[in-house]
Computed example of a mutant assay.
Amino acid sequence: MLKIGKKSKGQITAEGEVEGFREDLGPFVVATETTRMAMVFTNAREAGEPIIFANDSFLALTGYERDEVLGQGFDTLMARGSAPAVLAKLAAIFSVGGDSDLEVCYSRKDGSVFWAAIFISPVRDDHGQVVQHFISFVDLSRHKQELARSRMFIDELNHRVKNTLATVQSMVSQTLRQTSHPELIREAIESRIFALSRSHDLLSRESWNGAELHDVIAAALAPFRNPSSQREPFVITGQKVRLPSKATLALGMAFHELATNAVKHGALSGVGGSVLVSWVVKRTSGDLELNILWQEKDGPAVSLPSRSGFGTRLLEHGVAHELDGTVVLQYREDGVSCAITFPVLDDRNE
């Protein structure tokens, strides 16, 4: 942090240099004072390149008063811990005297820091000697923030792609174990990939900030509705609950598998059957818990399957693991039921 007090000899000298600027360079200095780009001049004839001129834009960018920076070495305003390589390059630029640019981390008066691209140009006297350096600043704070955000998005995208590929790989592997008929394999794999795609589409519309539970269920069940039928096979009830992206994908697949089974073997395999989907949020031991119930009604008699298929394993193991919750499948004679329970956070519900 710069010390404030009685004017130093360097500050007095710097103020005199400014007057010399005005006399020698006239309109250029006036333009420099009024431009929106932060700019300073340093004295190349003294060690440390003390600042002898700083325009209003530079003062606004850094938060300092003019008498706090005049006479200070250029690198004294750089952030503490600046990389030695950057400081060495800066010293080399000042020493050589040619035009150059560099990215540096600079300190504000309040202690905060910012990244800036600095462009350094030498100012020469009549004999060609470098007497000052003219330095302009471009604040890179927003650029750095966008770059960090982009990197985060790329990392998140890589994570999602890997998870999606792992899910697809599991789908294909499990489907191939269940049947050897090419047409059945194609149909099963395509339907599951489309189910995954619908959840991805829903999340994309929400910029991957999660989705409403009702929308997740509606998207998953859309292919199983008959547009030409006046009878609605699904009855969906529940309060407004917003799910994170991970839960959105898991539940999208879960409801697809439940609906597929209902169409092939359960309540939706004949005429008159229906499915009730409901949910409530309860507080258990101080935590909020989402309880979802899938209940089939008025279908054919149900019996426990002789073996666990892909859908059963997905629900009881995959979905339960992804949600950090429990999935209980019951094959009652009056219809299949599936209870899905997992914790939710307060700010995901209204």
Rank of each mutant, 00 (worst) to 15 (best):
Y64D: 12
V172A: 12
T284D: 08
A31F: 10
P50D: 08
K7P: 15
A47N: 10
D56H: 09
L221P: 03
S306N: 04
S82G: 07
E183K: 11
S274T: 07
Q129T: 14
V123F: 10
T42H: 10
D75P: 00
L288W: 10
R22F: 14
S95Y: 05
A54K: 09
E187P: 06
K282Y: 00
S82H: 10
P227D: 08
I52D: 11
M253D: 07
L25A: 12
S278P: 00
H181Y: 06
V123C: 05
A83T: 02
L102K: 01
L288D: 06
R192G: 10
L147M: 13
S170R: 14
G81P: 10
L61W: 08
V161A: 09
V30I: 13
V271L: 11
A47V: 05
W115M: 12
K7H: 11
L70I: 09
E17I: 15
D215C: 05
G10C: 01
A31E: 13
I236P: 03
V235I: 05
R124Q: 10
V18H: 11
W115E: 12
R332P: 00
L243F: 02
A188Q: 13
G318N: 12
I135F: 05
D101Y: 07
H127Y: 12
A211V: 09
S204A: 15
I217V: 15
V336H: 06
T167P: 00
M1Y: 11
A79K: 11
W115Q: 09
I236Q: 07
E68R: 08
S204K: 13
I185P: 02
V123Q: 08
L221A: 08
G128D: 08
L315T: 08
G309A: 07
W279Q: 06
L102F: 02
V69M: 08
A220E: 08
L90M: 15
G286P: 02
L2P: 06
Q72N: 07
R332T: 02
S141C: 00
D67H: 14
I185N: 03
A195P: 07
A148P: 01
G299L: 09
D126Y: 04
L258F: 02
W294Y: 14
G325T: 04
E17L: 12
A250L: 01
L147T: 15
K246C: 03
T284A: 04
L290R: 03
Q169E: 14
T62H: 11
